[in-house]
Write a protein that binds this DNA or RNA. Structure first.
Lengths: 141, 141
DNA sequence: CGACCTATGTATAACCC
DNA sequence: TGGGTTATACATAGGTC
């Protein structure tokens, strides 16, 4: 998503997709490992995709198993709460994206105005510096 | 871990530790969400630490849970089409926003470069138009 | 693949409000 | 607490070997 602009969409090239997956997974596992040391918070991860037969877990199965089973046993109300949380997360992401978009668009307008000012400014300089004889060199294009 | 070198160790200040946790969790969830779109790989996360009563999961993904636990009695089979449709809709919205953001940022950079070019250009004009006698008016500031 | 490189976008610690 | 800003380190796409 960096060197060149990359769509936030499925990477079409299967080879590149896999490379990206490998790199990103490494990054995610590293990031997910850090809170344990820094913040006294454990983060376990389950990965499930076409590159493995089964979902697999980090840092170990037990923790994740327990948690998932626990989650399974939660009464319906609790589960729907979880879903709400997930949706809230998504909605916040959307909100944030829209804010960023607005902000960048604003900056964009400012820069556009600056450019236009420069253009007008330069045109004026040119006109001010010219005298009628300069037009002798002009041809109709 | 950035502004200053930070120890890769428990953050002593409880307040800072929590702030760090909040920020990092947000980052981890975002990173973990991306492979789904980019690489067709699902990443689920389990977090458990002192800031919540129980471990909780993101994105609480039914498919992953189902496959992982391999239990037939998961009540999540009643996933309504409605919900899937809505999630897809939401994801498309996010995708679109991401694309727009990238596009506008790109335009932004172009305009910035244009501005800089103008600045350099104007400076050169000024210098080219000057002759040594002009420096007589300069004072040391 | 994986290891390494570079350029660039991203995450985040410290800060402020 | 939670939000925004800034400076800096990190993550990663693309490339090469």
């Amino acid at each position: 998503m960096y060197r060149n602009q990359v769509n936030y969409a499925l990477i079409e090239d299967a080879s590149k997709r896999r490379v990206s997956y490998n790199k990103r997974l490494k990054g995610i596992l590293k990031k997910s490992d850090e809170p344990k040391t820094l913040c006294d918070v454990e983060v376990a991860t389950v990965i499930y995709g076409p590159y493995r037969n089964e979902p697999y877990t980090f840092p170990n199965n037990d923790v994740v198993q327990n948690t998932f089973i626990k989650s399974k046993e939660l009464p319906t109300l609790e589960r729907s709460k979880n879903k709400v949380t997930r949706e809230e997360f998504t909605m916040q992401r959307i909100k944030k994206l829209e804010e960023q978009l607005q902000k960048v668009r604003k900056e964009n307008r400012v820069k556009e105005m600056t450019n236009e000012m420069y253009e007008v400014f330069n045109r004026k300089i040119v006109l001010a510096d010219m005298n009628p004889s300069d037009f002798n060199d002009l041809y109709v294009v």
